[in-house]
Design a protein around this nucleic acid. Structure first.
Lengths: 300, 300
DNA sequence: AACGCTTGTTCCGAATATTGGAACAGCTAT
DNA sequence: ATAGCTGTTCCAATATTCGGAACAAGCGTT
């Protein structure tokens, strides 16, 4: 059961909107713009979360006027949203009236993180991978067009929720992200690709859908992805995908990576590790498959 | 009751509902019940968050019926709320239809945590405190009746390296919590005490508002709090409060603690550390006062 | 197989919360 | 004092939510 990325055949996926066949006729619409408008219609909740997102994404506490300028909501409405968010503890209003993220977000995340199955299952494998490579090991999960870091084993013993866990990075320019994308079914991949805005972080960053898709094809063939300073200069990594459930349907798709500074970790070294990384990723996927609810998804 | 803790400056505190004088005439209404109903009126957002809270608090993925039984919302309404939460990424619906916390919560928390001023300021002090005591050091912040752990420096990687960051514990039976409570203004303390449900975690846990208030009075006098296995058996700690802004009004109130196993850390040892803990807490508060926006809160 | 029972989803009129413009306070700098 | 800015409150029009009830599917029993 649950073979993997080749089952898009069954059900199949009309739920993902228009699923144009990709891979062959793809050369034409290389940088077909992102779907911009109307993220989703979640009523009042969505509007309130948009406010929360703005405040959380900013890198300094925002005052009312700042938020107003960014969201262009009417003042009365915005004010009510902010009040509600503050009252719920998702935001905090400081004495100088500026808003910043509230502590309740931490509490939510702690519970989300501490009993995340994939993370729990992967932990020992990450330790092993770290022991054998000596470099930093990451576990990440794909969410739309981004990779969310779920866990990390670092060279030193800094195990805390240190800067990484919960951090999000673009999928198209990170090893983890590309590995995860390569494991998606065509339909899901297409949906994800449609949302990408290619931003040139370094000289090596993919600049178009075309080059990314070509890279993904190769990654799919080889079974591992290499990030050659595509997101940050002087940082390289090798990653392999981890897919739970059937890769096509509702399963979680992520990856495992080994990261290091360019001066110490050559491309050759990464390739030497690729087999190991693939093995570990496969082991995690295996444990997840047996250790978890059998979901019994496809049955139509 | 739209207004809440943001009026420290003006009038003064009649906004906090009935503010009975506490500390002296308190002997009468010892276990005056908690204010139960009507947590707050945040409209649709509040109802949706109630759903999120239930799912996040549960220790296993919940199915529709489970949630329905816990919340007693009409099925149609609940279904819409769940759909919206899933669409927003705050919840994830697994293949077996059960709901679990979504990854977006992690992303929010990361941003809330990584640029939290108090945490950034306190970090070096925590390291120092850990270096001098050799035991686990915590930084926590009070939120209503609970302590939220903001940071931690641990002895070594013990088994439960489960990062406690983001975890919440009751304030009335932890060192950090009691220290923080002791630093509250009478009005805020009263509001917080009203929300406490005394649960006997151990034989030493405070069982009534009376004994807690008495303890808090002494803590206020001494400047530090001791948790003598009141929350978990075999765990003791000493803590000192950290209050930013003016402790009375809108400032954040938290604490710093040193924790250890009872077999290794005696009450006497904790008392020996109390001066140090107080110093470090004061240093953090000082740094927070100078290093931060001058807020210009206190004006009464 | 047919039956009852449970679970999850969809529908739609009625009730209610949200909307957003405009007026109102408080503060600062001119 | 005046003008301008910020943040807050008010209220009728409106769009959303509410929640009961009907609708599908799935599961176990007789």
């Amino acid at each position: 059961m649950a073979v993997r990325g080749d089952i898009q055949a069954l059900g199949d996926i009309d739920a993902l909107g228009e699923n144009q066949p990709l891979g062959d006729g793809a050369a034409a619409d290389c940088n077909a713009g992102r779907v911009a408008g109307a993220v989703c219609d979640t009523g009042t909740l969505g509007k309130a979360l948009a406010v929360l997102e703005v405040v959380a994404t900013a890198d300094a506490p925002l005052r009312f006027t700042d938020i107003h300028a960014l969201l262009r909501q009417p003042r009365g409405t915005l004010h009510r949203h902010l009040s509600h968010l503050v009252e719920e503890g998702l935001l905090v209003q400081r004495a100088d009236l500026a808003y910043e993220p509230g502590l309740r977000l931490l509490a939510f995340a702690h519970r989300a993180w501490s009993r995340n199955d994939l993370r729990r299952i992967a932990r020992p494998h990450l330790d092993r991978l770290h022991a054998e490579t000596g470099e930093t090991v990451h576990l990440g999960v794909l969410r739309k067009t981004e990779i969310v870091y779920l866990d990390k084993v670092e060279s030193r013993q800094t195990v805390r929720m240190e800067s990484q866990i919960g951090r999000v990075s673009p999928a198209y320019c990170t090893g983890l992200g590309k590995a995860a994308l390569s494991a998606l079914s065509p339909a899901r991949l297409d949906a994800s690709l449609a949302g990408i805005a290619f931003h040139p972080f370094t000289v090596n960053t993919h600049r178009s859908r075309c080059s990314l898709v070509a890279d993904l094809d190769e990654i799919r063939k080889k079974g591992y992805a290499i990030d050659a300073e595509e997101h940050e200069v002087e940082i390289r990594c090798v990653a392999a995908p981890v897919a739970t459930g059937d890769g096509a349907g509702g399963g979680v798709v992520g990856g495992i990576s080994v990261t290091g500074p360019a001066y110490r970790v050559t491309i050759g070294q990464l390739e030497a590790w690729s087999g190991l990384v693939r093995e570990v990723a496969a082991a995690v996927a295996h444990d997840a498959a047996i250790g978890l609810a059998p979901v019994a998804a496809g049955k139509d």
